[in-house]
């Protein structure tokens, strides 16, 4: 089963959507549970030789006079930080989903997945600060949620993703600097952005992250219209991040536009690939579960 973005858009509240995506992913993964060491108790199991003595539940022995071994959910050392670009350009999307909502769905699904695996997930929403926010955050970070794996944490995370609005200039580079700081030791940093950054500081920031031994995955989200430029009528193109505007006859500049865009996309991919930053370029009409599956499959079910 695939989730068409059109269908997805019609699905109720945001957490439902994210969960649906996650479920799709899980179905595809034939996931098996993994047990491991964790603080979180899962079940008891009758002792058998070979089990760790330290895990014998002595209280149970006292009650039941049998050796039971406590089994804990496996504690992973994976910490994933989701960085979602909420700049103005991410609000673009005349289809069912804007780039930002698409990104949010993907991020939410990933958060679900990761938390299900027992990984800790954190969130950075990049963008100009929310005036109503009381958090003291550096420039370029609109919202920050530290690592956590609990269901509650994930709920909070989804809540923040849902309410994120695309506006203002791209401040992804600064957000990435902040993320590098917060990610601490080695972590997986998943960046969702269109990378339309007039300052062109994003790519170096990504490389810097990679340089700090973080595992960096960039999901470059683009709208289909941005990729194909299907306009016909004379149009005044307005910037979504600043007051730049330009009048153009799309038919006449299409060729040149596509060329420029292709140059940008190829350049970005090649540049970041060289720096060992994984780049996945996604159009918003791709079913997100497919995309995530593909991604996970490539990462070896990581």
């Amino acid at each position: 089963m695939t989730l068409d973005p059109k269908l997805l858009a019609r699905l109720g509240p945001f957490p439902v959507r994210a969960r649906k995506v996650m479920e799709g992913v899980l179905t595809g993964l034939h996931q098996s549970r993994a047990y491991g060491q964790s603080v979180e108790f899962m079940e008891h199991k009758e002792y058998a030789p070979g089990d760790e003595i330290k895990n014998i539940d002595w209280r149970a022995y006292a009650k039941l006079d049998k050796y039971y071994v406590k089994r804990f959910e496996m504690e992973t050392n994976l910490r994933a930080l989701l960085v979602v670009d909420a700049s103005g350009s991410m609000a673009y999307g005349r289809g069912p989903l804007t780039k930002l909502s698409y990104s949010a769905i993907c991020a939410g699904a990933l958060a679900y997945l990761l938390s299900k695996q027992g990984d800790q997930v954190g969130l950075v929403i990049a963008g100009d600060p929310d005036p109503s926010s009381t958090e003291r955050l550096p420039a370029g970070v609109r919202s920050f949620l530290p690592f956590g794996a609990s269901a509650l944490h994930v709920q909070e995370l989804l809540q923040r993703l849902d309410t994120a609005q695309g506006r203002g200039p791209t401040l992804l580079a600064k957000a990435l600097d902040f993320a590098a700081e917060k990610a601490g030791r080695r972590a997986l940093v998943i960046v969702l952005s269109d990378l339309f950054d007039a300052t062109e500081r994003t790519a170096p920031a990504l490389k810097m992250l990679r340089g700090r031994r973080h595992d960096v995955l960039l999901l470059q989200v683009l709208d289909r219209e941005e990729l194909d430029f299907p306009f016909d009528d004379p149009t005044r193109f307005l910037s979504m991040e600043d007051d730049r505007q330009v009048e153009a006859q799309p038919r006449q500049i299409r060729e040149s536009y596509l060329e420029e865009l292709g140059k940008f996309l190829d350049g970005t991919r090649r540049d970041l690939a060289r720096a060992d930053v994984e780049v996945e370029q996604i159009a918003t009409d791709d079913p997100p579960d497919r995309v995530l599956l593909r991604l996970l499959a490539r990462r070896g079910g990581g």
């Binding site: 103005g88 350009s89 991410m90 609000a91 673009y92 780039k99 269109d194 339309f196 007039a198 683009l222 709208d223 941005e226 306009f231 009528d233 004379p234 149009t235 005044r236 193109f237 307005l238 910037s239 979504m240 730049r244 505007q245 330009v246 009048e247 153009a248 006859q249 006449q252 500049i253 040149s256 536009y257 060329e259 420029e260 865009l261 940008f264």
Partner: peptide, 28 residues
């Protein structure tokens, strides 16, 4: 009409439109 009434459109990838238009505008 062509000159004065273009449909306004907020567009994410305006950077590339700008780059294209810069080359084309004079000829256009």
């Amino acid at each position: 009409l062509n000159q004065r009434q273009p449909r306004p459109l907020a567009f994410g990838a305006i950077e590339f439109v700008l780059r294209s238009q810069r080359q084309k505008s004079r000829r256009l």
